Amino acid sequence: MTIHDFKLSYNAFGRLVYTAAGGEVHEGVVPVRAFPIGAPDDGISLVNGDGQELAWISRLSDLPDATRAMVEKELASREFMPEIRRIQRVSSFTAPSTWYVETNRGDASFTLRGEEDIRRIVATSLLIADSHGVQFLIRDTQALDKASRKILDRFL
Rank of each mutant, 00 (worst) to 15 (best):
Met81Thr: 15
Val134Ser: 01
Glu79Ile: 11
Val47Glu: 15
Asn48Phe: 03
Ser125Ala: 14
Asp140Ser: 14
Ala55His: 00
Arg120Cys: 05
Gly49His: 12
Gln142Glu: 08
Leu63Ala: 11
Asp117Ser: 10
Trp99Ile: 13
Asp41Thr: 09
Thr98Arg: 15
Asp50Ile: 01
Ile37Pro: 06
Ile87Cys: 01
Gly106Tyr: 13
His26Asn: 07
Gly133Gln: 04
Glu115Val: 10
Leu126Asn: 06
Ala147Gly: 03
Trp99Phe: 11
Ser91Asp: 08
Glu74Lys: 09
Gly114Leu: 04
Arg33Asp: 03
Arg113Asp: 02
Gly51Thr: 12
Ala69Lys: 13
Asp41Val: 00
Pro36His: 12
Ser125Lys: 13
Ser148Asn: 05
Ala129Asp: 08
Phe80Leu: 10
Ser58Val: 04
His132Val: 08
Ser45Ala: 07
Asp65His: 05
Leu75Asn: 02
Ala66Trp: 02
Arg120Met: 10
Asp42Ser: 15
Pro64Glu: 13
Leu126Met: 06
Pro36Phe: 11
His26Ser: 10
Gly38Ser: 13
Ala55Leu: 02
Ser148Gln: 06
Ala66Ile: 02
Leu46Asp: 00
Leu46Pro: 00
Glu74Cys: 05
Thr124Glu: 11
Ala34His: 11
Ala69Ser: 14
Ile151Glu: 06
Trp56Gln: 04
Trp99Cys: 05
Ala143Met: 07
Arg85Met: 12
Ser148Phe: 09
Ser148Ala: 07
Gln135Asp: 10
Ala123Tyr: 13
Pro31Trp: 05
Gly23Ala: 06
Glu83Gln: 14
Gly38Met: 08
Ala143Tyr: 04
Ala108Val: 02
Asp65Met: 11
Gly133Tyr: 07
Leu127Arg: 08
Leu75Ala: 04
Lys146Ala: 15
Leu144Asn: 03
Ile138Val: 14
Gln135Trp: 11
Arg33Phe: 04
Glu83Trp: 07
Leu60Glu: 04
Phe136Gln: 10
Val134Trp: 06
Gln142Leu: 06
Leu63Asp: 07
Phe35Cys: 13
Lys73Cys: 03
Arg105Glu: 06
Ala123Glu: 15
Ile128Tyr: 01
Val122Asp: 12
Asp41Trp: 01
Asp130Cys: 05
Phe35Leu: 09
Gly51Lys: 09
Pro40Lys: 15
Lys73Trp: 03
Ser148Met: 11
Asp42Lys: 15
Gly43Ala: 08
Ala129Ile: 02
Ala69Thr: 10
